[in-house]
């Protein structure tokens, strides 16, 4: 209680305490916000890339004309991908964080808490995104591929130029969702001592035994962050939709029509 006595004015009421804590520990909360954002953004972006790769592997079909080596390789990679997705979808992220952090430590690899946090987010996002990508690819009708194949385009190029751009557009809302989930899920990383927002609130709250008020502060921060990002994504999605009309190429108009 010594600290309390030294402060000039004693805050009254929960709201008062909230402002007091937010002001006094603004540096800590800002630092927490930064690390939360940092881990969520980096983890999500790399996770998306991983998700696309895994999703494509899962979608790949073994062709009748493939060599035995290619078949074996593809089958092997597919099995690995499936195992990975199952493990990370069927265990909680908080447990994954512990296992990755302490597991690597036991194996003699010393990752910083932040790096382990990012790795955990990447692997978690990748597993969920893989399923989303697979679903996104599945939502594009087969005719789109056949149209490209029928003109001699390889399955890989067809995926790259025809299927993925359309699938990407379809799964933007799901990608936005995943990012928002990640932004909030970084809070579990406090168990491996990542100094993110939750950790900041826990520390601050402990100083004054004012947990309720301290967590209210970060609740507001989380809310503002997610709300802002959500608006940005909605705007982005509208942009991606493109124009509803098109300009006639009048220079070709006098041709037979």
């Amino acid at each position: 209680m010594g600290i309390l006595l030294t402060s000039t004015t004693t805050p009254s009421g929960s709201l008062g305490w909230m402002f007091f804590l937010a002001q006094k520990y603004s540096k800590m909360f800002l630092q927490g916000t930064w690390i939360t954002l940092y881990i969520a953004v980096i983890g999500t972006i790399i996770g998306f890339v991983l998700g696309y790769v895994i999703g494509l592997i899962q979608d790949a079909r073994i062709g009748a004309g493939d060599s035995i080596l290619k078949r074996c390789f593809l089958r092997f990679v597919k099995i690995i991908a499936t195992i990975y997705v199952e493990i990370f979808r069927d265990t909680p992220m908080i447990v994954q964080a512990m296992i990755i952090y302490y597991g690597l430590k036991t194996a003699g690899i010393n990752l910083s808490a932040n790096a382990a946090g990012i790795l955990c987010t990447v692997l978690n996002t990748g597993a969920y995104m893989a399923e989303t990508v697979r679903g996104g690819i599945g939502s594009i009708e087969m005719g789109q591929r056949e149209g490209a194949w029928a003109m001699g385009m390889s399955p890989f190029k067809t995926m790259l130029y025809v299927v993925l751009p359309q699938a990407f557009k379809n799964i933007i809302p799901e990608m936005a969702n995943t990012f928002l989930t990640n932004l909030k899920m970084t809070s579990v990383l406090n168990v491996i001592a990542v100094q993110e927002l939750f950790m900041a609130a826990k520390t601050v709250g402990g100083n004054y035994y004012k947990y309720f008020e301290s967590y209210l502060v970060i609740a507001v921060i989380y809310f503002v962050l997610c709300f802002a990002f959500n608006r940005i994504f909605i705007l982005l999605e509208k942009r991606m939709k493109g124009k509803d009309d098109y300009a006639l190429a009048v220079e070709f108009m006098e041709d037979k029509q």
């Binding site: 005719g143 056949e146 149209g147 490209a148 194949w149 029928a150 003109m151 001699g152 751009p165 359309q166």
Partner: peptide
Amino acid sequence: RSRVGMVFQSFNLFNN
């Protein structure tokens, strides 16, 4: 296939 083209019932134009 690049020498034998195909036109489909459902057109299969690339929507993107």
